[in-house]
Structures are given as structure tokens and as C-alpha cells.
Simulated assay, not measured.
Amino acid sequence: MKSILITGASSGIGRATAEEFLRAGWRVGCVARRAEKLDEITSSHKAAIALPADVTDMAAMQDVFTTFVASAGRIDAVFNNAGMFGPSTSPDEVSLDAFDQVINVNVRGMFITAKLAFAQMRAQDPQGGRIINNGSLSAHNPRPGSICYTTSKHAVTGMTRSISLDGRPFNIACGQIDIGNAKTELVEDLNARILAENPDATLMPMMDVGDAARSVLHMASLPLEANVQFMTVLATTMPYIGRG
């Protein structure tokens, strides 16, 4: 049975992806801060293991990897998914604390997960594995009022490229999925903010979150000699191409 560790697995894209991998017969380690939400997944799936932890806590995440490897034997893939949007406003109105919080979760937390995944995949026998980072359309074309999130996701793209290069000698593949407007709590919260400012605003098209989850499964299911370096999946009529 193949194994994958998924961060931010308690809701949204992370939860949909965990459930998709479980349906496909994978052993799934579900990481998130909210233990009760993880229990909702693991209570109905024998192949799922709840691993409550904060991705920004190095010691807690080391325990996560140790526990999951002890259960699964190895880690074939990691979906580096945990993240947050932060304040939606102009740069001058963003507090330094708010900026630091987004960078801490979206960059530092993602680095910690990638660092530990790389170490495990380098050490295990047979050597290798796959790290999939959750980027964003904002890693390429930002939306207004997203300086914290956009900055963090540009950093994720750099992280993806570096891991891809450094992983070659150890059979470690790294790719990035950039997802646009899947129906998740994060996007619904963003839409609520938009409507609060302008009740007559036209909301952008959205796609089913399951389509994003199946895209991650495709990336993870490839043999290690093949890699999706960057994948963009979005609602078809979303104003991404040409939106700048």
C-alpha cells in the first residue's frame, strides 16, 4: 500500500485530497491543528491516521513523521498543503504581525514539512519519493489585496524549483499544483469579504474541490521517473489568463 502525508488535511483541499487518496487505496497521514476534524476522517477510514500538529512547530512535525513512518513503513508522497490567506487589503493597511503570520504558515511551515520529507525520502530504502507543494494562481498572477498571500506563494514556487533540483540525486521528485477557485471554506470566506464590501459584486466562477483532489492524485500516482513540475487547475471561465 502506497503512503502519503497530507498537511492541512482537516478541511478544504486537504480534506478532499485525503479522502480521494483513501478511496484510491493509499495509506494517508492526516496532519492539521484541529484533532477533532481529523477524527471525522479517520473514524471512517482504517487506512487513515490522525496526526494533529502545527506545521510551524518543528518538534511537533518531527513527531508526525516519526509516527507515520512507524505506521506506514515509508513515505511515498507528501502533499504540502497547509496554508492561510491573511488580510485582504492594501499593503499600507497590513500589519507586520499579520504579514509575519502568513509567511510563518505558508513558507516556514511548508519548508519544515519539505525538509522532513526530503530527509525521510533520502534515507528510506528504496530511496526516493515525491513532494507536491500547493501553490496558487497568485504564485503567477496576484489578485488585488493579497500581498501577504501572493508573496508567500511566490516563495513556494522558488522552494519547489530548489527541491526539484536538489532531489535529483536521491530520486526525490517535486512538483507544484496551482489551484484556482475550488469550492472550499477559504474561498467562501474570501467571497464573503467581497460581498460585505459590495453586495452587488459578481463572484468569480468556482470548480468542485474534488477536481483539485483528483489532480493531486494524478501527480502522486506517476512513477518517479516522471514528474508534473507545475500543474494549473482552475474553473474554466475564471479570469486568470489575461486578468492582469
Rank of each mutant, 00 (worst) to 15 (best):
S136K: 10
T89K: 04
V228F: 10
L38A: 12
T184N: 04
V107Q: 05
M110T: 15
K46A: 12
Q62L: 09
V28Q: 01
A213C: 14
S221W: 07
K183T: 15
D208F: 06
G109P: 01
A155Y: 12
N141K: 15
K37G: 04
A196H: 14
D166G: 04
A53I: 06
D39E: 14
N106K: 09
P126W: 01
A72D: 00
S10D: 11
E20N: 12
Q127Y: 05
A173Y: 07
F118H: 04
S3R: 04
D208W: 03
P142V: 08
R122Q: 13
N181I: 12
R161T: 11
V107F: 10
E197I: 15
Q120K: 10
N133F: 04
A119M: 11
E40C: 03
M207A: 07
A53M: 06
A16M: 01
K2I: 15
M61R: 09
I179W: 02
D166I: 07
E40T: 15
A47S: 06
I172N: 05
P144N: 05
N134Q: 02
A114I: 12
F65K: 03
I41A: 06
G180I: 13
T157V: 13
G210I: 07
S43V: 09
A192I: 13
A70H: 06
N198I: 07
G175I: 14
R193T: 15
I194V: 13
D189A: 14
L224R: 02
P126N: 02
H140S: 11
K115A: 12
A82E: 00
M121R: 03
A139P: 09
A35Y: 03
T7D: 00
I163D: 13
T42S: 07
R122N: 05
P87Q: 02
T237Y: 08
N104S: 10
G167R: 10
V105A: 04
T157D: 13
L38M: 12
E19M: 07
M219R: 02
D54C: 01
D166K: 10
V156S: 06
V216H: 00
V69A: 00
L96E: 12
M1A: 06
I103K: 05
P205L: 01
A77N: 09
F99H: 02
D92T: 15
P87C: 01
E225C: 05
E185W: 08
T157P: 09
F21K: 08
N106I: 12
E185H: 05
N80H: 01
P142C: 07
L234W: 08
M219I: 13
K183I: 14
V31N: 01
R74W: 03
S152L: 05
A201N: 11
S71L: 00
C148F: 02
S44I: 07
I4W: 02
V78T: 02
T151F: 03
S44T: 13
Q62D: 04
Q124C: 01
D178A: 14
S152D: 08
G167C: 14
P205F: 00
K37Y: 12
A47P: 01
A82I: 02
R122T: 11
E40Q: 12
T150C: 11
A60W: 10
L5R: 03
A155F: 04
M58L: 14
D92R: 13
S221M: 05
L190H: 15
M219W: 05
G29T: 13
R214M: 06
F79L: 15
A196Q: 14
P144Y: 03
A173W: 04
Q124K: 05
